[in-house]
Write a protein that binds this DNA or RNA. Structure first.
Lengths: 232, 232
DNA sequence: TTCTCATATAATCGGAGTTATTATCGGTCA
DNA sequence: TGACCGATAATAACTCCGATTATATGAGAA
């Protein structure tokens, strides 16, 4: 899941990642107060500015909460910005990968059909062309190739974009993460896209003829069948 | 939409909010590079640490991107973490409130029915009790009261919690925002909860008898009818 | 064209003073 | 005697400051 690269730039981001991962791994538990500023400075060997920016990052993602006199405490998982791509990448190292993948699918199952309907209704011609382009790349690429996987992911992301709903865009990272896990698994099982290629095409054509309900149904079919293949 | 209060604590957060709002309002457009560090220090009258932490906040929310030699540039809206409660509160001051509200509803329409189904399937007895408690508070409170609105919001949030999917929790802020807008509007129109109370009860009982599909259908009905009342 | 180098800018550093929150203690009232 | 409330002090985060370092870009030379 090496999707994110740019966000790791900078010393504060790296330190925030180190601490963030330790939190998702359970090494640092909720309620626990981590060492005070002065001690962490000595431990990490960075400047106050850098540490403070790192903690500020963790704070905006809901991982920690700093109060005078009390120290900096780890917050419970329910406060985390789980949809943040960076947070998602931290969780990628955690243990409960199966549960994670299943929960990702549950989100896809609720979001993508609606996105398909919206894309059919209000997507522009250019939007639809972008979706078709992704589909073409997907079907032409030889099975098992990185390129095909990327095209598959792109297909789904283009639909989200075409829906023209600003709240759908941040969910792209979830979809991307879920697909990065499931596509290789699916391909290994059926030696290629198998029936999913036709299912993708069904979504595409429904969107192109602006049939919202058909697009919704087709998307539901695709994701549900993929879900079954991955989790039974 | 003064839902968020705690997150405004601290000088960096306030400054980040000032700049963030100017971005959502379109005063600062995408691609634009904002003044260099030294100039902003003079303008804002704060220290380097504070300004840097403020910019770090905006950066983690996808609003800006800082590069040496190039300056700090405003990023396009598609990179914003729109689901972040703080970002949501910034957008609350923007102009296209109707479009915003409609898009919020589209998300609810896709998320909440699924959450209801999951709550029915895997919610604990305690979860179900919490949902019922919210419903009772909602039905007993006199119409038009703040208390009733809060109970209504709580009802929906409890369902999201009961679904036991970590990615649903960050969406709570969206649901809360959408409800804060729509409930008062709905109540003003029909002089109280009207038919929605019965619709809430339908969701509740379906969840309690662990009938996932019925819960999903009931939630869809409620949200769709509310949607129609708000947008026609 | 390609490489090198100067330069502007953000990134990092470390120390000191300030502010806010909490815990403790002392007193008061039931 | 017990519980409750208000002033006080201690502690940790918060803010400020000026200097140094790293890096990306564009200009100029080979």
């Amino acid at each position: 899941m090496k999707v994110i690269a740019r966000e790791d730039r900078g010393l504060p981001a790296r330190i925030a990642g180190d601490i963030g991962r330790r939190i998702t791994l359970g090494e640092l538990k909720a309620g626990e107060t981590l060492p005070r500023e002065a001690d962490m400075l000595a431990t990490l060997g960075v400047s106050r500015t850098t540490l403070r920016e790192a903690l500020k990052i963790l704070s905006t993602k809901g991982f920690i909460e700093a109060k005078p006199r009390l120290g900096t405490r780890v917050r419970a998982a329910e406060h985390w910005n789980t949809l943040d791509p960076v947070v998602l990448s931290w969780q990628g190292d955690a243990e409960d990968q199966d549960a994670l993948a299943e929960e990702l699918f549950e989100i896809r199952l609720s979001i993508e059909p609606l996105a398909a309907r919206l894309a059919a209704r209000r997507g522009s011609a250019a939007d639809h062309a972008a979706i078709r382009a992704a589909f073409v790349r997907m079907s032409q690429a030889q099975a098992g190739l990185e390129e095909a996987i990327e095209a598959d992911i792109d297909f789904h992301l283009q639909i989200l974009q075409a829906a023209h709903n600003r709240f759908l865009l941040p969910i792209s990272s979830v979809v991307r993460a879920a697909l990065s896990i499931s596509i290789p698994k699916t391909m290994a099982a059926s030696g290629g896209f198998g029936p999913s290629l036709a299912q993708h095409e069904a979504i595409l054509t429904a969107i192109e003829r602006r049939d919202g309900e058909a697009a919704l149904a087709a998307a539901t079919t695709l994701i549900a069948s993929t879900y079954k293949r991955n989790f039974g």
